[in-house]
């Protein structure tokens, strides 16, 4: 019995190692998002004095989660989505992961790489442009979401794509400090 439950200690150890405030794995719907926001709010209000950081964490969290939930409906791997928040000395790291179709990898990778070489000013300009174009064209929603995450974070986005047969696991790590 003790041996079989070893994974609990293992997971707990991993969470401690990465300073996770909490982690979630499963399907992400608007209801899940509301529950996770509630939980985060309770956790952060006891941990963070800085309202600005808390708001950034919240905003990045909503964009990551809604990006995932938007693509959930026709995704048979929706229950493999993951979301975690790590906290370290008043700084926060938001992790999200979900299964995407292989053919979507290149476009997303290009987008992320393009954003990562931009200056703060260039990101602001792109944000503005997408906001204006977006009100005319609904198709670019996810791009504005990613640009918004980069803008709020103020740091380079860390990402990985792990291909597994007919699907790819996309993971995004967003670092948030008060800047």
């Amino acid at each position: 019995m003790e041996k079989e439950l070893g994974f609990v200690t293992e997971i707990s150890g991993k969470m401690r190692e990465h300073n996770f405030v909490f982690s979630y794995r499963g399907k992400i719907s608007q209801e899940t998002i509301k529950a996770l926001l509630n939980l985060t709010e309770k956790k952060l209000s006891t941990e963070v004095a800085e309202i600005a950081v808390k708001k950034k964490v919240f905003n990045v969290m909503v964009e990551c989660l809604q990006n995932i939930s938007k693509h959930n409906t026709k995704n048979k791997h929706a229950n493999e989505s993951i979301f975690m928040i790590g906290s370290y000395e008043g700084k926060y790291v938001v992790y999200s992961g979900n299964v995407i179709e292989n053919e979507k990898v290149q476009a997303l990778k290009n987008k992320l790489q393009a954003i990562n070489v931009m200056s703060k000013e260039e990101i602001s300009e792109l944000h503005k442009r997408l906001l204006v174009e977006g009100s005319l064209n609904e198709g670019i929603g996810a791009s504005l979401g990613i640009v918004d995450i980069a803008k709020k974070s103020g740091n380079k986005l860390d990402f990985s794509f792990v291909e597994e047969n007919d699907k790819t696991y996309f993971a995004l790590k967003t670092f948030i400090n008060n800047n």
Binding site: V62, Q66, L131, S135, L144, G145, D148
Partner: peptide, 17 residues
């Protein structure tokens, strides 16, 4: 507003326009 998502940010622009 306390928080708004990017989807709302487009609607806010629509309202302003």
């Amino acid at each position: 507003l306390e928080y708004f998502n990017t989807a709302s940010s487009k609607i806010i622009l629509d309202i302003l326009m």
